[in-house]
Design a protein around this nucleic acid. Structure first.
Length: 257
DNA sequence: ATGTCGGTGTCTCACCGA
């Protein structure tokens, strides 16, 4: 079973790219972020026509997350993160799909730092860490995936010295990510590719993709029982080079049955 | 400091957030 996460950066503006990628790679389950559409403008008919059942948690203009499946209906277990200091922001959607509990998330960007947006990022992270502990305690196979807006280590940034004070790389944020993973999660991409340079995001500015000036901020975290099934992981990097594409590329894992 | 996107309202340009 292949499960992917993809920050589409506007699900309507990128619909052609999304459908092309779905048809080309046929992932079984997909978590989408940054829909930038209210519930009534989510393009569910086009996604269903592509062979997917889908649930979504939209919001006007900003944020928004969705879960797609072609291996059975997503059975929603949670909409919104418990303890989110601003529940009006649509950043978390959770469902049981084909025997796996899947939490799709869009963690706040947090810039500028310092400031209220950075404080919100840290508070959201704390709420996520609390909920993640509860999920682990169930002993169920769980996957947390999405745009975490964090580069975990210097290896995950094309030029670490320029990002030290940015909300995506600040010490407090990297520490929060380490605290989360330290609960017992397996970070799939780095686990399988410990020494590789891997990016999932390239800015639109200054030909970042052409120069491979990227960041690794989209992650998949597997609970212990699920980690035993991890077979492969990768980035569909070429999608970032398509016309009218997102600034992120899809990231995926393959699980043994 | 800069750059480029989608979405939206102030609405065919200017803004916000990323």
């Amino acid at each position: 079973m292949r499960i992917a996460t993809y920050n589409v950066n506007g699900v309507n503006g990128r619909l052609a790219v999304l459908l092309r990628w779905l048809e080309q790679t046929r992932p079984d389950v997909v978590a989408l972020q940054e829909l930038k559409a209210p519930d009534e403008k989510f393009p569910h008919a086009a996604i269903e026509a592509a062979g997917y059942q889908v649930i979504w948690h939209g919001q006007k203009s900003w944020n928004g997350v969705a879960l797609l499946s072609r291996v059975g209906l997503p059975v929603e277990t949670r909409r919104g993160l418990p303890g989110d200091p601003d529940p009006a922001q649509s950043r978390y959607l959770e469902a049981a799909i084909n025997g796996v509990l899947i939490g799709g998330l869009y963690l706040p960007n947090g810039n500028p730092r310092p400031g209220p947006k950075f404080d919100y990022k840290l508070a959201w992270f704390d709420a996520l860490i609390g909920h993640a502990a509860d999920l682990l305690a169930t002993g169920m196979p769980v996957l947390l995936l999405g745009d975490f807006n964090v580069m975990p280590t210097e290896r995950d940034v094309y030029k670490p010295e320029r990002w030290q004070d940015d909300a995506l790389f600040a010490p407090e944020v990297r520490a929060a990510f380490a605290r989360l993973v330290g609960q017992g999660w397996t970070e799939a991409l780095r686990h399988l590719h410990p020494d590789e340079t891997i990016y999932t995001f390239w800015d639109y500015f200054r030909n970042a993709y052409g120069r491979n000036a990227g960041l690794r901020i989209d992650h998949l975290l597997l609970s212990p029982s699920l980690a035993l099934r991890l077979a492969a992981a990768g980035v569909d990097r070429d999608v970032r080079g398509w016309e009218k594409t997102s600034d992120h590329a899809p990231v995926w894992i393959d699980l043994h049955d």
